[in-house]
Structures are given as C-alpha cells and as structure tokens.
C-alpha cells in the first residue's frame, strides 16, 4: 500500500471512529465534472455526406464536428477528446494523401489520444509511421508489441491526464491483425492477449497511478457470438475499468451499454457507429456533482 493512501485512510478511519456514525461522515472533496468526447471508425470521412445521400444526408463532416466539440469544451473545459481507431481508409482522401489530412485535422480539433484500428495499417506499418509527424496526439495501444518494427517507441500503452485535479487513465487495446490485415503490412507487430493487457493496464492505472477514472479505448469490436474477444467480454472479465470506448464493428447504439465487471461493478461501453456521423459524449460526475446534460443513460460506477 502506498504511504499517501495509508495516511488518508488512517485519518478517515479515525474520523469515522471519532464521529461515531455513518450519517455524520463528511468529505471535503469538491463535486467535479469530467466530459469525455469520442469518435471511432471515422474512416477518412473528412467531408459531410451530401444532401442526396441515401442513408446519411448532410451527416458528419470534420468542420461540423469541430464546432460541436468547441461548444462542449466551452461548457466544460475539463474535457478529453478520444478516438478508438480506424481513422484511415474509406474515402479517396486517404488514397491521395495517405492519412496526412486525417491526422492534421485531428490535431487541429485537439484530440488528446487515439488507439489504432486494423485499417490504420492499410498503407503498411511504414505508411502509418510516415504520417506520425502530422499527429499532435498520442497513440495508445497496450497489446501490440512493436519492438521489431519501425513503430517501436512511437506508441504508449497508456497515458494519465489530469483535469481539475481528477486523474484520468486512458489505455488502448487493438484487434488481432492476423487474417484481417495482410501480414506484409503489419510486419512483425506482435499481438498480445487484450484481456491480460487490459487487466494489467487497469490495475496499474487504478492502483499505481492512482487514477480516479480508467478509460479503455478498444478496437476489438462491440460483441461477437463466437469466442472472439469483444468489448462485452473485456468489460466482464476485468475490473477497474469505468468506461470502454469501442470501435471496429461500426455499432450504432441508441444508448450506452452497461455491463457488470468481474467485481460486479458497472462498466459503460459506448460506440458511435462510424464515419463521424455522431459524436459520443460521456460525462463523469464525481463527489455528488449533479448531472446537468440530461437525456443520456446514467448509472453509478
């Protein structure tokens, strides 16, 4: 046990004994509000869909997303902006510019971090590496071992952000590339078990980095009927994760999914389909801070 925790807990315990009742337990922590905004599987959709599109007329577009994000940041400056991978591939913007514009725009929108999707290897691991100078944000992926590749040292397993004194740990997990991506493209990238890595990461973030919130950026996919690992399995087989921001399966959810973790605590899974049609918004209210946005799915974690 860390000394800081020990002291806090000792004093808390003595406070309890001294005051002699649960009802009179009071904490000095201030109510805090953290907002997480997220996208996944944007697939190079820089422009909005045209007015004549059969399914998504006038939806999406980076310039519109920028306005929405800025509006929310003005409401709550304690906001993180995250992406769950498959930034690349899907429109000629990627084929023409190799992902340069996608990364430059995400940097302009001030993304804080992203994980990697299988399509981010579509121009090979060298193609991904070549675009890194255009990204002013971190790539978080804990279960790809890049040691024998050009990407070695250019990703992180996790990152801790501090907003209004709240420590937010974010880590990433990616899907198995074998069979999904030509092996000549991902080269010697080694895939590690995502459940094992997520267990390690969330434990580290919670217990060593003393994070108040733990967020997993996942490109595993929402749910499979097979044994294949997905966000539901990830949530139920781990503990210490508060929120999983998913991708890969292009799943549109009417509302976020709540799954019980190994310790029977709530984990939220959210994913916003694809192509930047929607922006995901998750609000954490800490220490009695009241929900103000309304009309979302809300649970205690």
């Amino acid at each position: 046990m860390k000394r800081r925790n020990f002291i806090q807990q000792t004093s808390a315990a003595s406070a309890f004994v001294g005051l002699g009742g649960l009802s009179s337990l009071s904490f000095s922590e201030a109510p805090k509000h953290i907002t997480i905004l997220h996208t996944n599987d944007v697939h190079s959709h820089i422009e909005a869909f045209g007015p004549d599109h059969h399914r998504n007329p006038n939806m999406g577009g980076v310039a519109k997303r920028a306005v929405l994000i800025e509006k929310i940041r003005k409401e709550n400056p304690n906001t993180l902006l995250l992406d769950a991978g498959d930034i690349f591939q899907g429109t000629p913007y990627f084929n023409f510019y190799g992902g340069e514009l996608e990364f430059k725009l995400m940097s302009k929108l001030k993304y804080d971090a992203s994980t990697l999707g299988n399509h981010d290897f579509d121009n090979g691991i060298d193609g991904l590496y070549a675009q890194l100078p255009h990204a002013d944000f971190d790539f978080l992926i804990s279960n790809y071992d890049f040691s024998n590749t050009i990407m070695d040292g250019h990703t992180k397993s996790y990152k801790v952000f501090t907003k209004n004194g709240v420590r937010i740990g974010v880590f990433g997990v990616g899907i198995e590339l074998k069979g999904l991506v030509n092996d000549k493209l991902y080269k010697e990238t080694k895939y590690l078990d995502p459940i094992e890595m997520a267990t390690d990461m969330s434990n580290t973030l919670k217990n060593e980095e003393n994070c108040d919130l733990v967020i997993c950026l996942s490109h595993l996919g929402y749910k499979y009927d097979s044994e294949k690992v997905d966000d539901h399995k990830l949530a139920s087989k781990t503990e210490n994760i508060d929120l999983i921001i998913g991708g890969h399966t292009h799943t549109f959810l009417d509302e976020p999914t709540i799954v019980k973790n190994k310790a029977d605590k709530n984990v939220m899974i959210n994913q916003v389909g694809c192509y930047g049609l929607y922006l995901g918004r998750v609000d954490f209210y800490l220490n009695g801070s009241k929900a103000i946005t309304g009309n979302g799915k809300s649970v205690e974690i």
């Binding site: 922590e29 006038n58 310039a63 725009l105 709530n266 939220m268 995901g280 979302g296 205690e300």
Partner: peptide, 29 residues
C-alpha cells in the same frame, strides 16, 4: 484517493444539418 462517488452518463450526439461547419477547418480542407 480523492473520489468517493462517481456517476457516469453517456449518449451520442448527431452531427447533422443543424450544425454549421467551422469556416477555418473548411478553409484548411
């Protein structure tokens, strides 16, 4: 350490025609 109670609330916000694009981003594109 400093957090005693947490509530999480999530939703998705459509990026639709009610939003006008950021002119600076459009100019960049």
């Amino acid at each position: 350490s400093e957090v005693s109670q947490k509530t999480i609330e999530g939703k998705e916000i459509p990026i639709d025609s009610t939003i006008t694009g950021d002119p600076e981003i459009e100019e960049f594109i």
